[in-house]
């Protein structure tokens, strides 16, 4: 096994130093703090600058962490941030569809509900933000499995201790075979949205579409859930008007997260 590479260790030390201070640091401060010759520090800084991990303020000449560094660690999107950005669009979706709306993110191989808008009628409903839903039996979860590599079935199987993966049946309609699940996910990837009929709760249908951030990474899913009579047409297909509302909302939230418009 080869030995450790000193210049990478030094680069890491510089990054750590820059990350600890709010304001930028000068070359002199950096070389002094790390007891490095100025020339060595400058060489490392220039290299880091070249790959986008460090920026130099043009006016003060001080160094600070670059944009490339910041986006490395931010695959995780704060659920509260997602809710705040999605608030108006989720309301609009509930209002147009007449159904309850949920936004879910991947959390330990389940769907974490980060936002919930009530169905716009007079019925009594309870907020279920914070609830965990199964990936394989909800539209939100299927969409995450289809588009988020970390939610993909093989990834889940690898982490579960009791693998091979157990697809729990919640109703007699729940997809419990891995092959069927995979086929369903292919279809979702193809059409860009997913749905599920009575797989979690008898008599209920859910429809969902992916929310993507500015790099195109799927960070969550938004969807509606409601009675099978309302969301499925006579041919046994999902109500395409509802599907279009869901996809509009997903696109609008994605746009607000900075994705380039489709």
């Amino acid at each position: 096994m080869p030995g450790r590479i000193q210049s990478i260790e030094r680069a890491a030390a510089i990054l750590r130093l820059l990350a600890s201070g709010a304001r930028g640091l000068s070359l002199a401060e950096i070389s002094r703090s790390l007891e490095l010759p100025k020339g060595t520090a400058l060489g490392i800084l220039r290299t880091l600058q070249h790959v986008g991990f460090v920026e130099q303020d043009p006016e003060s000449s001080r160094y600070r962490l670059g944009g490339g560094m910041l986006s490395l660690g931010t695959r995780y999107l704060d659920g509260n941030e997602l809710r705040t950005r999605a608030l108006n669009w989720a309301d609009t979706l509930a209002s147009r569809s007449g159904e309850s709306v949920r936004i879910g993110t991947l959390h330990k191989h389940q769907v974490l509900v980060v936002h919930h808008v009530f169905r716009p009628d007079a019925s009594h409903q309870t907020l279920d933000v914070g609830t965990l839903l199964p990936l394989h039996a909800t539209a939100l979860g299927k969409v995450l499995m289809a588009f988020d590599p970390l939610a993909a079935p093989e990834e889940v199987a690898a982490v579960e201790i009791d693998s091979p993966v157990e697809l729990t049946a919640f109703t007699r309609h729940t997809v419990t075979s891995m092959a069927d699940l995979e086929a369903g996910l292919d279809e979702i990837r193809e059409q860009g949205w997913g749905w599920e009929v009575e797989e979690l709760v008898d008599g209920e249908v859910s429809i969902a579409a992916p929310i993507r951030d500015r790099r195109g990474v799927t960070v969550g899913a938004i969807g509606v859930r409601g009675a099978v009579e309302r969301l499925r047409d006579e041919a046994g297909k999902p109500d395409m008007e509802q599907v279009s509302y869901v996809r509009d909302a997903a696109r609008a939230v994605s746009r607000d997260l900075g994705v380039t418009p489709y």
């Binding site: 209002s95 808008v117 009530f118 409903q125 309870t126 907020l127």
Partner: peptide, 9 residues
Amino acid sequence: ANWHKAAEW
């Protein structure tokens, strides 16, 4: 009648 709850605590 137009007023609908989006959430309640």
